[in-house]
Amino acid sequence: MTTTVSTHHRKRLSIIIPTLNEAESIERQLTALLGLWVCGVEIIVVDGGSQDATVALAQRHASRVITSEPGRARQMNLGARASCGEQLLFLHADTHLPCRADRKIAQALEGSRCWGRFDIQLSGEQSMLGVIAICMNWRSRLTGIATGDQALFMTRAAFEAVNGYPDQPLMEDIEISKRLKQLSQPACLRAKVVSSGRRWENDGLWPTMLLMWRLRYRYWRGEDCHQLAEEYRHAR
């Protein structure tokens, strides 16, 4: 599915939210985005076949809800191509933006940078989540590689120049970061998005950390991302 949008009707920013069985968080997420929607930000939810009430809940608040084959990269690409914005923000359903994120993104993309991400804060009961977030932010700042939890944003021109997200089941955020770095260094905003630490707490902080580092290392070595995705699903 491809949607062509007249440039005369394009908005400044489009937020694309991929979902799959996110009924517990999607309504809270979209309610938090109402202030941006009122300011003219387009909000598109792309659902990958949820078996719960995600779609019904999203239809109450989103500018548009699209159904897609499952796969986060596939869903985000579909949402981007159906959107109107000259700037694109890819947001996880359990990640919440800082105040006036639209202005922060616009300012970050005014100069030579064509993409970027936010710093991250992990919500949860365990204090170690704060240390993990600090490490994620510093690693990202040093390497120029962002994770999806950090809410990647970019100009539409940059998205199209790298042909969007690679259609792969894992590490799509790392791969698009590598490609975008060929266009410019990222704008690393110190304003924080707040992302749920549920994965870390449910699966265990240290096991999750070791799993992610091991998978990243193996991906860096060139191992097949489909095999890594199978191991990730099995481990979880």
Rank of each mutant, 00 (worst) to 15 (best):
L78Y: 04
V5P: 08
E22A: 06
E86R: 12
G130L: 08
L205K: 08
N21F: 02
G116Y: 01
M136Q: 13
P18V: 00
E172V: 07
A157P: 05
V41I: 12
Y165Q: 02
R233I: 10
T19C: 03
L189C: 02
T208E: 12
H234Q: 13
G197L: 04
E27A: 14
H61I: 10
L170T: 05
T208M: 07
I66V: 13
T147S: 14
R199D: 11
V46L: 00
A53V: 02
I44K: 00
T2L: 12
S196F: 01
M154G: 01
L91C: 04
Q59I: 05
E172L: 12
R199N: 14
R64Y: 04
Y217Q: 15
K104V: 08
K192L: 10
I174F: 15
A229P: 05
G197I: 03
Q75V: 08
M209E: 13
D149E: 14
A191Y: 07
R81P: 07
R103F: 07
Q75S: 07
L20D: 00
I105V: 10
R218D: 05
A161H: 01
Q75N: 09
I134K: 14
K181D: 06
P186R: 01
L152A: 06
G49A: 08
E230M: 11
H8T: 10
G85A: 10
S25L: 10
G124A: 06
R198G: 09
R141C: 10
M171P: 03
A229D: 04
C99T: 14
T67F: 00
I26E: 02
R216I: 11
T54R: 02
M209A: 14
R216E: 13
R139Y: 11
R218Y: 07
A235E: 06
R139C: 12
W37H: 15
E27W: 04
A229W: 07
P207Q: 08
E125G: 09
E160W: 08
V46I: 04
T208R: 07
S68V: 01
L89P: 03
R190S: 14
Y232S: 09
I174D: 10
L152Y: 03
D94G: 03
R198V: 13
G222M: 06
H226M: 12
T19E: 00
K181L: 12
Q150E: 03
H92G: 15
R233F: 13
T147E: 15
E110N: 13
W37R: 15
L142Y: 11
T95S: 11
A151P: 02
G79R: 00
M171N: 09
R64I: 06
K192R: 15
N137M: 03
A229T: 08
G49R: 00
D47H: 00
I16K: 04
F159V: 04
M1A: 12
G197A: 09
L211N: 06
I15H: 01
S25Q: 11
S14A: 09
L13G: 06
G85W: 01
L109D: 00
R141K: 14
D119G: 15
G204W: 11
R64A: 09
A146I: 03
V194K: 07
R199F: 14
L211E: 10
V162A: 04
G130D: 11
D203Y: 14
L91N: 02
D224G: 08
S83F: 09
A53E: 13
G71C: 02
W115S: 02
